[in-house]
């Protein structure tokens, strides 16, 4: 019964989009909000439909290597796409940086984080949330920044590690960690912070967080996959990307 319903639904979807194709896109969790908006514009402008899956880049890597049906990867780093290309799982020459992420020290409490990050030196907090630096580029960048600031030894005992920055955000948003490092895109929209207080870390404190996109093996020769990447480079998508606090 449920199968029939699903089949019917597929049929309806397929017939309604007669000339349009679908593209399966794996999207890094930090890019969730802009990707949704870009996908909506993409459908309006090209007729193609982008089917988005959100998750951790490391998990996508394992899934792609084991036959996941993704045609494009928007990664949270530049290493995973390069690695996939080297291993022949991505189409050579399609890789480019679609956004450069900015790291932010954020608290759900208004006025808690000052705009110089002095709150880190004062150290009057119990928990500092950080994405696992082994897994997440934003976690790695946070470690680099703390090292540059010579604060790593002082604050490391108070780390609570999240598996990705979506979970780091959750730890902070629920107040369980007073503050922590998240992506600017998670707490920023249209030129201002959505809630709480934050310090955008100067870009010189850490290696740039380059987020690369690449066409995967399953997307080779598919017009919709190529169209999606082209659209991502276009002005309309760029405006969305920067409105969420990414740099280009």
């Amino acid at each position: 019964m449920r199968l029939t319903a699903t089949a019917l639904l597929c049929l309806v979807c397929c017939t309604s989009a007669t000339h349009a194709d679908e593209v399966q896109v794996a999207v890094a969790a930090n890019f969730t909000a802009p990707a949704k908006q870009i996908a909506a514009d993409f459908e309006k402008d090209t007729g193609h439909q982008a089917m988005l899956s959100f998750g951790a880049t490391g998990k996508f890597y394992a899934q792609i290597r084991n036959g996941a049906p993704f045609e494009v990867l928007l990664a949270a780093d530049d290493e995973t796409p390069a690695r996939l290309e080297k291993e022949g799982a991505a189409v050579a020459g399609t890789r480019f940086t679609y956004a450069t992420g900015r790291l932010v020290l954020w608290s759900a409490k208004p006025g808690y984080v000052d705009d110089q990050g002095e709150v880190l030196k004062k150290g009057e907090f119990k928990h500092l949330a950080i994405a696992n630096p082994r897994l997440a580029s934003y976690g790695m960048a946070a470690m680099e920044a703390l090292t540059t600031l010579k604060l790593l030894d002082a604050v490391q005992p108070r780390f609570v590690q999240a598996e990705n920055i979506a979970q780091a955000y959750q730890f902070i948003a629920t107040g369980n960690a007073e503050l922590g490092f998240v992506a600017l895109s998670q707490v920023f929209k249209d030129g201002k912070f959505v809630e709480g207080s934050a310090w955008v870390l100067p870009a010189k404190l850490h290696q740039p967080i380059r987020q690369d996109a690449v066409i995967l093996d399953k997307g080779r020769g598919k017009p919709a996959a190529a169209a999606w990447l082209k659209y991502l480079r276009g002005d309309r998508a760029k405006a969305v990307i920067t409105s969420f606090g990414y740099e280009l």
Binding site: A129, N132, F159, V160, Q161, A162, E163, Q167, N176
Partner: peptide
């Protein structure tokens, strides 16, 4: 554990 642990 993943949700409330913090991996310490």
């Amino acid at each position: 554990v993943l949700m409330i642990g913090g991996n310490i």
